[in-house]
Design a protein around this nucleic acid. Structure first.
Length: 155
DNA sequence: GCCAACGTTGGC
DNA sequence: GCCAACGTTGGC
């Protein structure tokens, strides 16, 4: 099993929004970056655990744990002319963009902010902490995942 | 709101 | 295939 960090702007889709969904799950649509797509398409498996990260907010950080609950499948928003994620180059016969479904797993007692993460020696090599990183989906090592969940389990 | 970092596009 | 221009991300 693998671990991931997935970013979302809470104004667009927050961890609370995920929790409030009827089945507490949501298709992770709108990814339009090839590296991030390849992670979903080639490496993610149902059961993988996800650090749900709020970006572009004060403060940014990990707010909860989610779980991958589907195989990859074509992102329907790419075919939808009305969607802001519409991509005319993605054809139904040969979809360019895929997504997976993500489900609520558990809350953290407290957010693990980016500032806190930077102070944790276990997270030295984490991609999300490296300068200039803009990837919305990054792989996480098991010790990194556990360190963040442990930090977020404290009051 | 600024701007550094990075990805994509398109002319050549 | 190079690279300048442009768009986006996301911390600050």
């Amino acid at each position: 099993m693998n671990y991931w960090l997935m970013k979302s702007e809470p104004d667009t889709f927050s961890f609370q929004d995920l929790k409030n969904r009827p089945k507490q799950r949501e298709p992770w649509d709108g990814v339009r970056n090839y590296q991030a797509r390849n992670f979903m398409r080639d490496a993610m498996k149902p059961g993988d655990l996800v650090l749900f990260y709020h970006s572009n907010t004060k403060p940014p950080g990990v707010v909860g744990v989610a779980e991958i609950v589907s195989e990859p499948y074509p992102d329907p928003t790419a075919f939808d002319k009305k969607s802001k994620y519409f991509d005319p180059k993605s054809k139904v016969e040969s979809p360019r963009w895929v997504l997976v479904d993500v489900a609520f797993k558990k809350d953290l007692k407290s957010m693990v902010s980016l500032d806190m993460m930077k102070l944790m020696p276990e997270l030295e090599d984490m991609k999300v902490l490296q300068k200039g990183n803009r990837l919305s989906i990054t792989p996480v090592q098991e010790p990194e995942f556990k360190a963040i969940v442990a930090a977020g389990s404290k009051k």
